[in-house]
């Protein structure tokens, strides 16, 4: 009469299906995904839209948008096409966003995981270093690093990664501190699993969801930081970047506002897409937080 405990429940659909169903519920997140897709598409098709160098002279300087068919979004004060700069700028923004985020997340995970897992003096030491970084304002540190390293795009990306690892490190540490006492970690240790595998194979996958969500925030911040650097004229002048465009457009802001407004809108929408994406990821990965 008793239901035998060994009967299995019906199988659940695969993980990615469940994930997509939860993600889909959030309309704003779908919008974010759409915007993100557009930016990626822009980056991919930049070569098709304008096979030449985006920084070459393409027409008369300061042509307003929707006037000249050859330069649909107009030209800047040096006669460069805003449209093709916009498309090539998407590449730089994505590159900076993705690489800088990877750099900061990887540093954050290593430091946070070690501090959270081992605790004690390791934790004390690593957290004091983290605090030292946190006390210096992000942008000031970034300026210093760029001043030292030079303003090549690779160095800028690395520098952005270096100034934004502290928040993920603290997050990973907190996750590790709560997860390391869970019984499944003891169970794995009792099987003879080494510390390295415990950290990276057992605990880390469980600590990842909030980190991935936060990564979208870092990505948005990195793009903003890069733009801010370029705006101050510290960006890499050899690449078309949205920040560079705004920075140069500033000089003609009153006469040709579109020179800085168009890349500005691009930045706003890209950053917005990342935040919405992050929110959707949060709903999909931590379904129990919201009900």
């Amino acid at each position: 009469m008793t239901v035998l405990d060994t009967d299995l429940r019906p199988a659940e659909p695969p993980r990615y299906v469940v994930f997509w169903q939860r993600y889909r519920r959030n309309r704003a997140a779908l919008l974010g995904l759409g915007l993100f897709a557009i930016v990626v598409l822009m980056a991919l098709t930049a070569g098709l839209v304008d096979p030449g160098d985006p920084l070459r002279r393409a027409g008369l300087p300061l042509v307003a948008p929707f006037v000249d068919a050859a330069n649909p979004l107009g030209t800047d004060q040096l006669g460069r096409s805003i449209l093709s700069q916009l498309f090539y700028g998407a590449r730089i923004s994505l590159l900076v966003g993705v690489v800088a985020t990877l750099v900061s997340i990887i540093i954050g995970i290593v430091i946070g995981a070690l501090a959270g897992y081992f605790g004690g003096w390791v934790d004390d030491l690593l957290m004091r270093i983290t605090e030292a970084f946190q006390t210096i304002p992000n942008f000031v540190l970034l300026l210093t690093l760029v001043a030292i390293l030079g303003s090549k795009i690779e160095w800028i990306t690395l520098a952005i990664g270096i100034v934004s690892w502290t928040a993920p490190a603290r997050m990973v540490r907190a996750e590790f501190m709560s997860l390391r006492n869970r019984e499944f970690v003891d169970a794995a240790r009792n099987l003879g699993v080494s510390n390295t595998s415990l950290i990276f194979r057992e605990i880390l996958p469980n600590a990842l969801p909030p980190i991935i969500v936060y990564a979208s925030v870092i990505m948005a911040l990195s793009i903003l930081l890069e733009s801010a650097l370029a705006f101050l004229g510290l960006g890499d002048p050899n690449y078309a970047s949205w920040g560079n465009m705004i920075g140069q457009g500033r000089a003609v802001l009153r006469t040709a506002w579109y020179c800085s407004a168009i890349p500005g809108i691009a930045i706003v929408l890209t950053v917005l897409s990342f935040s919405l994406l992050g929110e959707g990821l949060n709903d999909a990965m931590n379904p129990r937080q919201k009900q």
Binding site: F184, A187, A188, N190, G192, N206
Partner: peptide, 23 residues
């Protein structure tokens, strides 16, 4: 040595929710 010895002594844990890695 301990990691090698661990296979001789195994454990069944209290909390069935927490003792299996959810991922």
């Amino acid at each position: 040595e301990l990691r090698g010895m661990r296979k001789h002594i195994q454990m069944v844990f209290q909390d069935p929710m927490a003792s299996l890695n959810p991922r």
